[in-house]
């Protein structure tokens, strides 16, 4: 065992941000951000060891298979990739995961879910987008349902959610719909995030050392 000197230089990954800054902007405490850094390092070095989460690494973590494509995983990855440069940096990872924290206000979760389902970034969830998502889900689940039945499900969903009757769901209608169907938000909360410091303890020896 070597000894740790007070002058040890800590090398962080590109895109690293200070835990105190991230904690001040998110639902996480400083300790939780440090624990998330441990998880981030693991995910971001699983295939390409550059300290950034690439799409294949995200797929590997979600599905145990780096080649498994999935419409919804792609959407999540794109929303986490705030700078839209094809990788998820540490700050993006923490800010995005914060949406899923149990203490984050519901309004943020509702808005995130809307962006997730607005596949073409039009500001609305349209019938075609909803159908594309239903078909993707059915395909992923190896379920075979007739096109007629899929259309019935879409019609029924729009009957409930599209209160203005213009064949698209706007953010206001979405908010109302989610309030009537709160189970739609269950994916937007990860209880794990409350226990993250136990799952990924960061040994705070690596606190920044002042000169």
């Amino acid at each position: 065992m070597g000894c740790i000197t007070s002058k040890q230089i800590i090398k962080h990954t590109p895109g690293y941000e200070e835990p105190t800054v991230l904690a001040s902007e998110t639902s996480f405490s400083v300790n939780e951000v440090e624990a998330l850094y441990e998880l981030f390092k693991k995910l971001s070095n699983s295939i390409i060891k550059d300290g950034l989460i690439h799409k294949e690494e995200f797929q590997l973590a979600l599905f145990r298979n780096s080649n498994r494509r999935n419409l919804f995983a792609d959407r999540i990855f794109d929303l986490f990739d705030i700078k839209r440069n094809g990788v998820i940096e540490f700050g993006e990872f923490v800010r995005s995961l914060s949406i899923f924290h149990p203490n984050t206000p519901e309004a943020e979760k509702i808005a995130f879910a809307f962006r997730l389902y607005d596949l073409r970034h039009t500001g609305y969830i349209e019938r075609e987008e909803l159908k594309e998502m239903v078909l993707a889900l059915l395909n992923e689940s190896d379920l075979f349902i007739s096109d007629e039945f899929v259309e019935m499900i879409i019609d029924e969903t729009f009957r409930q959610a599209d209160s203005k009757g213009d064949d698209k769901i706007d953010p206001e209608e979405w908010e109302e719909f989610v309030k009537q169907n709160p189970s739609l938000l269950k994916n937007m909360t990860l209880p794990y995030l409350k226990d993250i410091t136990m799952a990924f303890p960061s040994f705070v020896l690596n606190s920044e050392v002042d000169d």
Partner: peptide, 25 residues
Amino acid sequence: KPSLMNAFELISTSQGLNLGTLFEK
């Protein structure tokens, strides 16, 4: 009269939306 399951309920079952697996060791 029972209503059809809404599409978003179906979609929310996708594994691609289950980020909990990120935390599994």
